[in-house]
Amino acid sequence: MNLAIGHPDRQTRIPAPPFLAADVGGTHARVALMQPPQEQGGEAELLAYREFACADFPGLPELLQAFVKDEVQMPVRHCVLACAGQRMGDEVLNDNSAWPVHLPPLRRALALDDLAILNDFEALGYALDKPLAHSARLLCGPAIHVDGPALVIGPGTGLGAAVRLPDAAGGSVLTTEVGQMDFAPYSLREREILAHLAPAGGYVAYERIVSGPGLLVVYAALCSLRGEAPKLATPEAVSAAAAECSDAQAVEAVEIFCAALGSFVGSLALAFMAVGGVYLAGGFLYSMFASLERSAFEERFLHGRSARAFLSRVPVWVAEHGRHGVLGAARWYLRHGAPGSAISRQAVAGG
């Protein structure tokens, strides 16, 4: 995995330079300095790592510059960015971003020779086999790891998902925007909430319900339906009040959130025949594990009739987001780096 120069029989190995790997969501950004592996088949080494609140910075260039200033003692000319949303030309489009992400100013601000972009859940998909799969807690289904299509799903600031498909090269990942699918109510109460959110009908995305902000939306809708003013102002406050059983609307909001998540995840598992399992990623869900366990998640995930026979064999795991996004982004970069960069030449040379 090093560059080689000189006579083919007496090649001199030049260590590849470190690169930045950033995992940028709507609320938090995780940034790492990664050292490429020094031999074929090895893993990149994490040299430095920090987590930032996006709201603390006017833009992504300033956030990355803060990391470089505090953690990096050498010029860094290569960066891979796992970002919520989808790249369209020189911009990353995402309704939940803390600020617009434009690539040319970012390249100039950090004097980058190479900037590669992928979706943040695509990056998590490349971290599925290790270490994400080995640090997860089983929510329902059999405690097995089967080779086959696998899903990684995360309700956070938005609702993201990706599909990992096994192949001879170690797996490929399909990015999705399934959080933008129309919300499908299951219970009469969910129909009431949908009618409250869209009284004249129309489009309501799943992530409007199944996300961190969505939990707050459901809570506020329940308060309004009961003729009460909301007392809680953040998703964390709602989930905490539900855990303490100190607010009836918070308890019901969490129950509806977990049940709707179960239906959503089960539908995706059927759509992609996810025999490799489902991984629910993110600190938000990980902190709600006890609520998920005692909720209607599993029953709604299993659907009914013939679907239940298949879905009962699909394990559902819950994992913290943590460093998995930057590690997955680094793995993707070493394998699919931008053409012409030193790192991409290594990836090609290493297979």
Rank of each mutant, 00 (worst) to 15 (best):
V173N: 02
L232I: 08
E192C: 12
Y206Q: 03
G89C: 15
M88I: 14
V152Y: 00
D95H: 05
H7F: 11
V76A: 06
L103H: 09
N94H: 09
A253F: 10
V152P: 00
A233D: 09
A229L: 11
H336S: 11
R208G: 08
R137P: 02
E71F: 12
A21E: 03
K69C: 03
M181P: 01
D247K: 06
R208N: 12
G214I: 03
I153S: 00
L268W: 11
A347L: 07
R308V: 11
G212S: 05
Q65W: 03
L334R: 11
E320G: 14
F264I: 09
Y126R: 06
E252V: 05
L124T: 01
G148D: 13
S246F: 07
L110S: 04
I153T: 00
L63D: 04
S267P: 01
E43K: 05
L165T: 12
V146A: 14
A53S: 10
E298G: 10
G6R: 13
K130E: 15
S135G: 10
L46Q: 12
R77F: 07
A330R: 03
L270K: 12
M181Q: 14
L215M: 12
A307E: 15
G322W: 02
L280H: 02
M88V: 15
L33S: 04
A274F: 09
F264C: 14
Y126L: 08
Y333A: 13
V204W: 09
V173P: 08
P185S: 10
L81S: 06
K231D: 11
L232N: 01
Q65T: 10
D9W: 08
S295Q: 07
H7T: 06
K130M: 05
G282Q: 07
A241M: 08
H321N: 01
A274C: 10
V152S: 01
G283F: 13
H324G: 01
G85P: 14
L194D: 01
A133E: 10
A168R: 14
A66Y: 01
A329T: 09
